[in-house]
């Protein structure tokens, strides 16, 4: 199963990034093989709708879950329609967040934080 984690850096020792739409990197990890890859979040520099585009990226990567800090309502709508479960990550490394996820210790997010309506 593939899961996505928002990351501040390019390896699994990096800290979790709390932003979703404008996170710099996504780490896509395979929970069985423990392999992972890093993708640049191209939406981070979008003028508006970053969360929506980022959501689509996660869906295109066929991730079944996303670990992040906050998701706005727009991203939530996209992720939900693509059947991606969203979990609130902790302020520890990507690696540790994956472990917590596997143990079922991360809290699932069902409601969105306030939208911040893109950048003008």
């Amino acid at each position: 199963m593939k899961i996505a984690i928002t990351s501040t850096g390019t390896d699994i020792k990096s800290l979790l990034e709390k932003k979703f739409g404008r996170a710099e990197f996504f780490i896509i990890a395979d929970t069985e093989s423990n392999e992972y890859k890093v993708i640049d979040n191209k939406a981070a520099m979008e003028a508006g709708g970053a969360g929506i585009q980022a959501g689509q990226t996660i869906i295109n990567e066929s991730a079944i879950a996303l670990i992040t800090g906050n998701v706005g309502p727009n991203a939530l709508r996209v992720l939900t329609s693509g059947d991606v479960a969203i979990y609130r990550g902790q302020s520890v490394s990507i690696e540790e967040n994956i472990t917590l996820y596997k143990k079922g210790e991360l809290q699932q997010i069902n409601t969105a934080g306030e939208a911040h309506f893109g950048m003008k």
């Binding site: 508006g48 709708g49 929506i52 585009q53 959501g55 727009n74 996209v78 329609s81 309506f117 893109g118």
Partner: peptide, 18 residues
């Protein structure tokens, strides 16, 4: 041009606030 529309599984989603 504003990323206000996505199509997922052939279904259109529109985001009014952007």
């Amino acid at each position: 041009q504003f990323n206000a529309i996505v199509v997922i599984n052939k279904k259109v989603m529109i985001f009014d606030n952007i």
